[in-house]
């Protein structure tokens, strides 16, 4: 994760002309890069759709722990009781 604002749900509104980072102008916005790749790379559709999913707030208790172990134990899927994602149709 190299977004200086540690954003998890896409690029902020501060992206500079040409797709450069607001905070570090010498760096391309990581979300611009990720979006371009999600479009251009030959990935399965289901992976591409992940880009638009609403990701929950980061659990700061997991800082410094192994993401692999958290993945296997599904600890990384735990969210606060009030984090409710509605599947609103449009």
């Amino acid at each position: 994760m190299t977004c200086p604002k540690t954003l998890r749900n896409g690029p902020c509104g501060g992206v500079r002309e040409g797709g450069w980072c607001e905070v570090k102008p010498e760096m391309q916005c990581i979300w611009v890069k990720a979006y371009d790749r999600s479009v251009s790379l030959p990935l399965p559709k289901v992976w591409k759709a992940h880009f638009n999913e609403l990701r929950p707030p980061v659990d700061m208790q997991l800082q410094g722990t192994s993401s692999w172990i958290n993945l296997v134990t599904k600890r990384d899927q735990q969210v606060p009781a009030g984090w409710i994602v509605e599947n609103r149709k449009h």
Binding site: K5, L7, L54, P56, P57, W83
Partner: peptide, 11 residues
């Protein structure tokens, strides 16, 4: 930036 704007909207 503990949470982002979209997470804040959902909360």
């Amino acid at each position: 930036f503990d949470i982002d704007s979209i997470q804040a909207i959902n909360i």
